[in-house]
Design a protein around this nucleic acid. Sequence first.
DNA 1: ATAACTAATAGTCAATTTGACCATATAATT
DNA 2: AATTATATGGTCAAATTGACTATTAGTTAT
Lengths: 231, 231
Amino acid sequence: MSKTGFPDKIIDALSIDCLIFGFKDGELDVLLVKHAEGISKGKWALPGGWIKYNESVDEAANRLLHSLTGVSNIYLEQLRSFGEVMRYPLERVITIAYYALVNAENYSLSPGFTASDVQWCNIHEVPKLPYDHNEILQAGFKHLKHKVRHEPIGFNLLPKKFTLHHIQELYEAILETELDKPNFRRKLLKMNLLVPCHEKQEDVSHRAASLYRFDKKVYDKLTEKGLTFEL
Amino acid sequence: MSKTGFPDKIIDALSIDCLIFGFKDGELDVLLVKHAEGISKGKWALPGGWIKYNESVDEAANRLLHSLTGVSNIYLEQLRSFGEVMRYPLERVITIAYYALVNAENYSLSPGFTASDVQWCNIHEVPKLPYDHNEILQAGFKHLKHKVRHEPIGFNLLPKKFTLHHIQELYEAILETELDKPNFRRKLLKMNLLVPCHEKQEDVSHRAASLYRFDKKVYDKLTEKGLTFEL
DNA sequence: ATAACTAATAGTCAATTTGACCATATAATT
DNA sequence: AATTATATGGTCAAATTGACTATTAGTTAT
């Protein structure tokens, strides 16, 4: 039975690509790897590869991301598949794109497997990528802009304790717009998503802001039922 | 070159499944086909099949839906792929699910290709389907409930001219809840999505309601920018 | 014709939320 | 002590919501 008989056999017409958004210093980055082999050798691209016969697609995405970049234990979600006939040269390959949002500072990058290098790249400075990877990036960014308005975000992006300004910067980076500070605070605090830590930030050269953390229960409930965030 | 050399060659580890929601008489239906061959012969399932090397995934979805059910010219959107190792017996097959919403009355069904029968089935009476098709259905229905609250819907589901009550029934069928009539009207009319036809419905045994149609421009704009619909 | 019925449409109103602000507080720096 | 930077608190008119009641315009039964 092919499913288990050849554990390293790969599905050849189907690949995975991972679009990892990282948040750091108020800016959004994208995780790119430099390919060490294959037809795009030497080029920067989204981390991706092939699915094995004995792993689920979700498992393949996590394995590939980890082996190429060193990043693991993150919550990868499926974006969608990209299936144009000519998207990959010579061979017919359909790819399933995954995405995630993480705090870029929490992960140390180490290239591996078919990657010779791995780097965060500011989302506004991403070069021309091979195949349809730029299109995948745009689709993911658009998806993110939509998501931020209808689900809570930030759980995996922000440090455990963060200020209201931190989370505002995150929203501003994703929505590419400026938000009114007092109104943002009011709206965010009213949904009971944040719990005060009763601590202040340190090492800032101005009045220290209060630190908050997410209320996981409320976060999950709002993720399930959806919310509206327009400012 | 495999992409064009064997036009009928199929990608064997990857399939398509279509989840078509139909709206009729205030109820939501799902389009099912009875398989005429293969390991699920004689069983009802979602219409689906294999992708050819020289067609995009979107094209494959439309072709398969048309050849199995006779339904064509609808806007199929990708739901997501389902890639558990054991989802399909014996072979490893990953499927990409598509979905659409249509007015069930606008399409005449005719089974073809590998389907011996095709029928609308009330969403609450769907039997046990093979593989993970029930899971796909649930994921699609959940997606629909989310979508209805954040994007305008109905363009392809309702007749060209419809009453406010028509569209309310649609929302109620999807959200599985009852909505307050005056408040629903107010909210819907305020977003300038509907244009009055200056006509009344006919053949009803009570006061006739005004007919409206969608303003395509506003509809597309709201689809792009998103909206909030909570009642 | 008139009453009863059905559903469409209009309107009310208090409570909440919003958007656009201004004001004050608390720290570090000059 | 003044200046600067940011956090945090507060105001207010306008818009929106949610829960209703009232009225209108037709059909059908008496």
